[in-house]
Design a protein around this nucleic acid. Structure first.
Lengths: 195, 195
DNA sequence: GCCGTTGGCCAACAACTGTTGGCAACAGTA
DNA sequence: TACTGTTGCCAACAGTTGTTGGCCAACGGC
């Protein structure tokens, strides 16, 4: 019972539910992804989902745990941050649907939106802090990076605007990398609220 | 009956429903904005909403009709496109909630997503075609502009990431304008699929 | 005065939602 | 063998949703 790492027969079911949940949340968003649909995908009774995850909210929390696994900036050349970042984002996003699920759900679900803010505060800001010059604009710069990357995810995966959705990875990198590089390293433009 | 422009007594109700619908769709997205809530906001019976707009889908279509009212590029200096565009987007978005409603709904509702694509194809692409050099990359450039602007709308209004949501309009313009300018006018970077 | 039209509300329907409790089949242990 | 805990399914609940039909009051032209 308290066997810690002992493999239970139900572990496979648990995992199947989680995988189905990720797929549904990514494809349909939080409200339209129903427990019944997730259960059907996993070939299991809806009651099982409740038994193993307690509620829809907690199932989502488990399905949307997301680590960007950002590279260590110390490993990168300062002039190559932009390229490396865009390429990493694309690969990480297309590896599984978790990020798109989180993004889609964050638009209508408060818990998902809070989790999105946590990803930003806990993963993007620290990276930018290490990569950007030590001015007082780290949070601004991180926000700008996030705005371009979230816009890319929206237009490429969610809205699927044809020119962006059809672009090759290399083209995306070639166009977007210089923008990230600019947000990360260019001196701040003149501002009405300079400190 | 066929009086065309004659003011009917019900016009005020119709308008109240539409205004409430826009507010609700913008705040809650398509599925969470219920007919009952919209009707309550408009101080009216839910059945009225159905009588005047037929169905929730058609109500949304009426509420989400959106014209960016983009400026005529012929009126702008070529070097000032970026600034003018960012400023225009911010003003237009904050003027009413229609665009945010459309964006929020487009994430989970197919009709809204299609309408978003129409706005892109019918309003963004033509503007970029007039402003950008006559290379074969007009659709690409327009998509990139859209990716940055949609990302800005997402991080500023929907996710409300603190650094972006709190930025002054002038700061947003100062940071984003050069990026749009680049997408519009810079020569295309080297590509794996050059024509 | 009358009467058709319009504007509005109420009550109800059928479908679907997350969620719950009870019951059967099975595994492992003694 | 009997016992105990796990794994699973079925049926049902209570609430909410979009949507509909019928009824009532107020208007406007005659």
């Amino acid at each position: 019972m308290t066997a810690g790492t002992a493999a239970r027969r139900s572990d496979a079911t648990r995992a199947a539910i989680l995988a189905a949940a990720r797929r549904r949340f990514a494809a349909d968003g939080y409200e339209r992804a129903t427990i019944r649909a997730i259960a059907a995908d996993a070939d299991i009774d809806p009651a099982m989902v409740m038994r193993y995850y307690g509620s829809k909210e907690r199932l989502f929390a488990a399905a949307a745990e997301f680590d960007l696994r950002l590279p260590d900036p110390a490993q990168l050349s300062r002039s190559g941050y932009g390229r490396a970042l865009v390429r990493h984002f694309l690969e990480r996003w297309e590896e599984d649907g978790t990020f798109v699920a989180l993004l889609r759900a964050a638009v209508t679900n408060d818990a998902a939106r809070d989790q999105m803010r946590d990803v930003f505060a806990g993963q993007i800001i620290p990276l930018v802090a290490a990569a950007a010059p030590a001015d007082r604009r780290v949070a601004h710069r991180a926000g700008l990076v996030a705005s371009q990357m979230i816009g890319l995810a929206m237009t490429r995966y969610v809205l699927a605007l044809p020119p962006i959705a059809r672009m090759s990875r290399d083209d995306v990198v070639a166009w977007i990398a210089p923008v990230l590089q600019r947000y990360l390293t260019r001196p701040a433009p003149p501002s009405t609220a300079d400190s």
